[in-house]
């Protein structure tokens, strides 16, 4: 049943990719297809990263409302980038080798995430609402702090941060970001390897421990994976607040399954469909500029509210 669901989703995604690749092509097919294929790969990776990161985070935090983006993982990543530019200057930051810079920033993000959120998730165990609220406000604080640091940066060097306040999918440039894509792909593989342990994790801390799972270590590993995936997605398109929430909620709704072997690929497929088909519709059909991110935000906000009012927070 679930596998049939996955197959249908995969078929829908393949169709959206095909349409994305060939719609409205004029002139040199080889050139256009190569360009679009590169973007398509980046978009698919972003979709999978956000979906899987959200699913993992929801499992280890034991609720369906919080997502890495809502608690401010992406804001934290941009904050780290901004602080780097502030500390050593935009020129020096730009001259750092791409690989070293991305890996360094991601490593700092992973450390900060483990330090901050492991404490939050463990401290508020059993008090989901308090944790959710504290997480959301932490997210707001990171965004304000980022805005603050970006104001401190010399305007001439500000371009080095190069992250907008909301995501843009049409300006994606995969070329220079292959290292981010490599890290993202590796993290996705890691998440897949953890799928059965995540199923155990989803039973709750006490059950997981009595079933022989090292809960603490698992929590750390999961947070590191979420940090890697978030860094990948944010480096490629920018921050995406409610996108992950939207797709994991849809995955639960469509697949009606609790195994991560089904949920993670399902959420990733749905995320791909939303991004690729949405981008096609918005860019080609409606002629709207860069607003898919905003529409996703709107829908995600509605889902969030519905979850709250419908007591989906357990």
């Amino acid at each position: 049943m679930a596998h049939r669901g996955l197959a249908i989703l995969a078929a829908a995604l393949a169709l959206s990719c095909l349409v994305y690749l060939v719609i409205g092509v004029r002139g040199n097919w080889g050139f256009v297809l190569a360009l679009r294929a590169e973007r398509l790969a980046a978009l698919l990776l972003v979709a999978a990263s956000v979906a899987v990161a959200t699913q993992i985070f929801q499992t280890v935090s034991g609720n369906r409302i919080l997502t890495p983006a809502i608690v401010g993982f992406d804001a934290l990543y941009i904050l780290i980038q901004s602080v780097l530019v502030l500390a050593i200057g935009g020129l020096a930051a730009a001259q750092l080798p791409e690989i070293g810079r991305f890996l360094g920033e991601t490593a700092i993000l992973a450390l900060a995430a483990v330090a901050l959120f492991a404490a939050l998730l463990r401290g508020a165990a059993g008090d989901v609402q308090r944790m959710v609220l504290a997480g959301i406000v932490l997210g707001v604080m990171f965004r304000s702090l980022t805005a603050f640091v970006q104001r401190l940066i010399d305007p001439n060097e500000f371009a080095a941060v190069q992250i907008a306040s909301f995501a843009r999918f049409n300006r994606i440039e995969a070329g220079p970001l292959w290292i981010a894509m490599a890290v993202g792909a590796a993290a996705l593989a890691g998440a897949w390897a953890m799928r059965h342990r995540l199923d155990v994790m989803a039973l709750g801390r006490d059950h997981a421990i009595s079933l022989g799972l090292d809960h603490r270590r698992m929590l750390m590993t999961a947070l590191v994976l979420v940090a890697l995936l978030t860094a990948t997605a944010t480096a490629l398109v920018g921050p995406l607040a409610f996108f992950g929430l939207l797709v994991t909620s849809l995955a639960h709704l469509v697949l009606r399954d609790h195994r991560h072997a089904v949920l993670m690929p399902g959420a990733a497929l749905i995320a791909g469909i939303v991004l690729i088909a949405g981008q096609t519709v918005f860019e080609r059909a409606l002629g709207l500029a860069a607003t898919l991110g905003v529409v996703v935000e709107f829908l995600g906000g509605l889902v969030f509210l519905a979850l709250l009012l419908g007591r989906g927070w357990r």
């Binding site: 609220l133 607040a241 409610f242 509210l305």
Partner: peptide, 11 residues
């Protein structure tokens, strides 16, 4: 209550 408010504000 604040959670619903934050979501409503975001929408």
């Amino acid at each position: 209550v604040p959670l619903a408010g934050l979501a409503w504000g975001a929408i």
